[in-house]
Amino acid sequence: MARVVVVTSGKGGVGKTTTSAAFGAGLARAGHRTVVVDFDVGLRNLDLIMGCERRVVYDFVNVIHGEANLNQALIRDKRVENLAILPASQTRDKDALTQEGVEKVLEGLAEDFDYIVCDSPAGIERGAHLAMYYADDALVVTNPEVSSVRDSDRVLGLLSSKTRRAERGEDPVKEHLIVTRYSPSRVGKGEMLSVEDVCEILSINLLGVIPESTAVLNASNAGMPVILDEKSDAGQAYSDTVARFLGEERDHRFLTDKKGLFSKLFGG
């Protein structure tokens, strides 16, 4: 059985697409057949972050409309075996995704993949709703900042009421917290909510903490999921996150400031 994993947040710009690309690549690297699906209709970006923008011919909506089949629309990653992406449509028609259409596409993907990672658009409108509707797991991406945390809580409410699992009274969607853009030095100064604070407020299981990192911008410039930059802090943090998701125990490595002495002396 394929597992559907939605990457969601409510608030925009918190790192959903970065996380979808990294997480998908991480699952594939671990040997799982993985497809990352861009649900951000009209604002396609996953293709850029994963470096396959020039190979997009057909998209999600073409498949729904029967203008292309899945195999024509899927783009196989050139670096990582077992990894594919299904790009979003650039149409301005917000109703281009239909519930039946999405269900049909996910069923088709489930035949060939072990994990279907759904990169949700921001907000709580149609696209975000459809991205989470069929989910088995949810990665709730949160920045340590008031509006992001509040929106995440809102999204948790939707996950427990507006998903197929909720409507059918099945086991609930498994919720995992990923705190991104975390800056231990600012937490140390009391300027930023700590991971403990965010966990306490949202009371869900913490899957990973991704530090604020220049490697993320570099990776997106290059069109490479940051997890493939194995030397980088963010890449390693995503690797740990994927490993935990797959059942391994890993310590959180990026919760403290490595700068050490200087910052200790000067209140950093």
């Binding site: 008031v146 509040r150 937490v187 100064k189 009391g190 930023m192 909510l193 604070d197 407020i201 949202l202």
Partner: peptide, 23 residues
Amino acid sequence: RSERRASASVAKERLQVIVARER
């Protein structure tokens, strides 16, 4: 430092109130 510590803890308190209300 104590000035700064306040900012994150204020954020936490405000979040706890609003999240409880919205829930």
